[in-house]
Amino acid sequence: MLQKIPPFFRNFYVATFLVLMVWMAFFDANSFMVQVRNRSKLSDLQREIDYYAAQIDTIRANRHEVLGSDRLREKYAREKYLMKKPTEDVFVVVDSLNKPLEP
């Protein structure tokens, strides 16, 4: 049976190297599959970082806009939170065509 194996692979160092590579590729704690999984997690986390950085920039711009003047702060409070002065009434108009159906 040893005669069927090419002489190159019968060398002790080559056989040891091949066994070591198979061990590192599949059975080690830092195997190839673990590296692929970690790279996938890293790319997902990087996308989240980019998303949240964009959200932070948007919120900072809105905050700067709102805190810039009293008139803009009042406009923002009226539109976003439906706030009103004590002598006013607020009417909310809902488009019935685009209203989602209730179950």
Rank of each mutant, 00 (worst) to 15 (best):
Q3K: 14
V90K: 05
E102I: 11
Y52T: 02
R60A: 04
Q3D: 11
E102T: 12
K84H: 07
D89M: 09
Y76I: 06
T58M: 12
R10G: 00
L2Q: 09
K75A: 14
G68A: 09
S43V: 02
Y51A: 15
A15K: 06
E65Q: 08
R39K: 14
K80D: 07
S69K: 01
K99A: 15
E88P: 05
D89N: 08
F12A: 11
R47W: 01
R73W: 09
F12S: 12
P6W: 05
D57S: 05
A61F: 00
L2E: 10
R47E: 04
R78M: 04
M24S: 09
A77E: 11
I56L: 01
H64W: 09
Y76T: 04
R73V: 03
F17W: 03
F17I: 04
F8T: 08
T16W: 14
A61H: 03
A53H: 10
L45D: 15
I59F: 00
I56D: 05
I59S: 01
L82C: 09
K75W: 15
E74Q: 07
K80S: 08
F17V: 03
I49M: 15
F32K: 04
I5N: 05
V90Y: 03
R10H: 02
L72Q: 10
R37Y: 03
V92P: 10
I56A: 02
R78G: 04
P103Y: 12
L20D: 08
L42D: 14
K80T: 02
F26Y: 15
S40W: 00
P7D: 11
F91D: 07
F27E: 15
V94F: 13
V92Y: 11
S40R: 09
R71T: 12
L101F: 03
Q35F: 00
T87C: 08
G68Q: 07
M83N: 06
T16Y: 14
V66M: 01
A54Y: 03
L18V: 05
A53R: 13
E48V: 04
P103L: 11
D95H: 04
L42Q: 15
P7F: 11
M1L: 11
D70I: 10
M33Y: 15
V66H: 00
S43G: 02
F91T: 10
L18H: 05
L45W: 15
N62C: 14
F91R: 07
H64F: 09
Y52G: 00
F27N: 15
M83Y: 10
M21V: 01
F27R: 10
D89G: 07
N98M: 04
R39D: 14
P86F: 01
D95N: 06
F9R: 13
Q46E: 10
F32I: 04
R63W: 00
